[in-house]
Design a protein around this nucleic acid. Structure first.
Lengths: 229, 229
DNA sequence: AGTGTTGCGATTGGATGCAATCGTGTCGTA
DNA sequence: TACGACACGATTGCATCCAATCGCAACACT
């Protein structure tokens, strides 16, 4: 999952989106921590392309909010202030319940079993990256029923921009808080099994809000966040 | 407001964002109706630039959801299906009340007077473009207090993608529906004056939902929408 | 007559090269 | 020694040029 070299094969016709996807994955994976500079030529060499598709990729990622561009200066991985991060989380509180609502009717028993399994696996994991991956998997699986284009992309974007802080935050929470996360996940599954969409929406909303509140209590995350596996 | 030729002056350092802004304005203004093809060279000539910044602009607008790119084929102005439009409106129902909540505390008496004035002007206008402009002005003025970066951009994007349909819809509504719109606008102002944020949120939500419902009753808007002033 | 195929024009995608701009280290001066 | 001006290297931004791909039309074949 840790974006390795894409090597060659320049034949498909869209190198810019490949660069964009790879760079996005790399940023989300933590290879480029927030605030780090992105040099066009470095990326171009890393992914075996010219600077033109790299710049197009950067424009896309800028629109995603993942990188910040300054004219004639360069590109940096976006660094969110505490207020901005709080804002994104408030937005997620409003939007993700809707996404769950649109998804819920299309989730069959098999999908719910899968959710249950993911929740169980999370409860037995202490590895941070594994925890993050499972958490992401869980929520995205719960949203998988929505064949939406716009809203899905929107939420994906919100997740991407906050991923570095979610990682840093995960390092901070104690066993008790983790337990609450798992309970909430199980409550989501239960609500979905009962077909009680309202309840599911409320749990998701509270789930995100609680994370937001806890993040606000750790401002140190937003001053200097570094990640090196 | 109808994006004329930007002529020359290529000295500022960022031609791609200028092209992006101009093209976005042109699309929102209706110069390029949904589904119409966008040829790179045509845009390049129109704005006095090369194809490279045009392509970067197109990538940005694609991330905005305004244009749709197909590899090795070209770019088209995004055409929303009824379902997708409905989805965007549902998203707006959730997000814009939040934006109003973040904005409300920073709106002073002068700003509220301005809102009142805009609502009055709208009530006395029959011109469609003027109506749209005032409506946009009204809502954005109500959101102006929020110094948010992410959420503001997000809502701006949602407005942009739905603008063509809002225009087509405006042509369809009768005097009675218009009256309701104005009443709702006044209710928003009243709620803001009273400092009753909850009430304001509810009105905005209902305001958008009602528009969504009415749009869903006019599927013909989504089959063939053409606009020529 | 209908359908699959092949070739050409038009358009997009990407690499290279050059001008403009920004950062930074050095030097000169008070 | 502290501060400002200047020049150089590094990096970005853009235009031009070439290759790859797609759409479309004419053609051949069953």
């Amino acid at each position: 999952m840790t974006a390795l070299s894409a090597s060659s094969g320049t034949r498909d016709g869209n190198a810019s989106v490949r660069v964009a996807d790879a760079l996005r994955d790399a940023i989300v994976a933590g290879d480029f921590p927030p605030g780090s500079r992105i040099r066009q030529e470095e990326i171009a060499e890393r992914f075996g392309a010219s600077r033109v598709p790299v710049r197009e990729a950067l424009k896309m990622l800028e629109a995603d909010g993942l990188v910040t561009l300054r004219a004639n200066a360069g590109a940096w991985v976006s660094r969110l202030s505490l207020d901005e991060c709080d804002e994104v989380y408030q937005t997620r509180e409003r939007v993700e319940p809707l996404l769950l609502r649109l998804s819920a009717p299309h989730l069959d028993a098999e999908a719910l079993d899968r959710l249950e399994r993911l929740a169980e696996q999370m409860a037995q994991t202490t590895e941070i990256e594994e925890f993050l991956r499972l958490d992401r998997d869980f929520h995205w699986s719960s949203y998988a029923g929505a064949d939406t284009l716009v809203l899905g992309d929107l939420v994906r974007r919100l997740w991407s921009t906050t991923q570095p802080y979610r990682r840093a935050y995960t390092r901070l929470i104690d066993a008790h808080s983790q337990r609450i996360v798992h309970d909430e996940h199980h409550m989501i599954v239960t609500a979905l099994r009962d077909g009680d969409i309202e309840a599911g929406e409320r749990v998701v909303e509270g789930h995100i809000r609680r994370t937001r509140r806890l993040l606000a209590q750790h401002p140190e995350v937003f001053t200097a966040a570094s990640t090196t596996p």
